[in-house]
Design a protein around this nucleic acid. Structure first.
Lengths: 96, 96
DNA sequence: ACCTCACATTGATAAATGTCTATATGTATT
DNA sequence: AATACATATAGACATTTATCAATGTGAGGT
């Protein structure tokens, strides 16, 4: 299948799981340590790690390592890519 | 878990599958009949029907019945909901 | 009334995903 | 170097999802 389609789907995987939405919500207030996120979520540490990988792979979240800690934050560039895709869809929708 | 998170995830389910991205791409050129979509995709009719249901449930696509035919088109309102969510995420991301 | 066509639904199956426990890795601290 | 801590990875398992073949539904057409 098309590579573009695969790439686009990958971006939006960030948003199609409840727990990841909750994580993104927590990151709204700024960069947060994984341990802090873990406190607020009702999941185990490996599960959090799994979701953080998906969020980073999608480009929506950025990870920054500092000593033993991982700090995660929302990537404006990542959000922009998603926004850009949606804008293009919308422009067409208005033609009808 | 939170209802809001579930609802948001539902919206973005529209975009996290390759075939659905391809369908949305086909709908960019305007409203299309299911049979027309089926021609362009490499999937069976029930599979298409399944994806169209997910797209409609997410609010991103609207279906219009006309005789035996179903016509699908992209919903500007649906896209707006998704855009709105992303905008809110982005505003925060810029603070850092 | 019957048939055909377009689409939806059902049921089965394989693949992908989310979750956990257990373990590994890497970074400080003593 | 030994230990403790934060996170990642591996492996196992259950749930969800994507897919197809078969069947149901409903709207025209003959």
């Amino acid at each position: 299948m098309g590579l573009d389609e695969k790439r686009t789907a990958l971006i939006f995987k960030a948003f199609c799981d409840e727990n990841r939405i909750k994580i993104l919500h927590l990151l709204k207030s700024g960069e947060k340590c994984a341990c802090k996120l873990l406190e607020e979520m009702n999941i185990t540490q490996p599960t959090l790690s799994h979701h953080m990988k998906i969020l980073c792979d999608s480009g929506i979240v950025i990870g920054r390592k500092e000593g033993k800690w991982m700090h995660y934050s929302i990537s404006s560039d990542g959000i922009d890519k998603a926004l850009c895709y949606l804008e293009k869809l919308k422009n067409i929708g208005e033609e009808r």
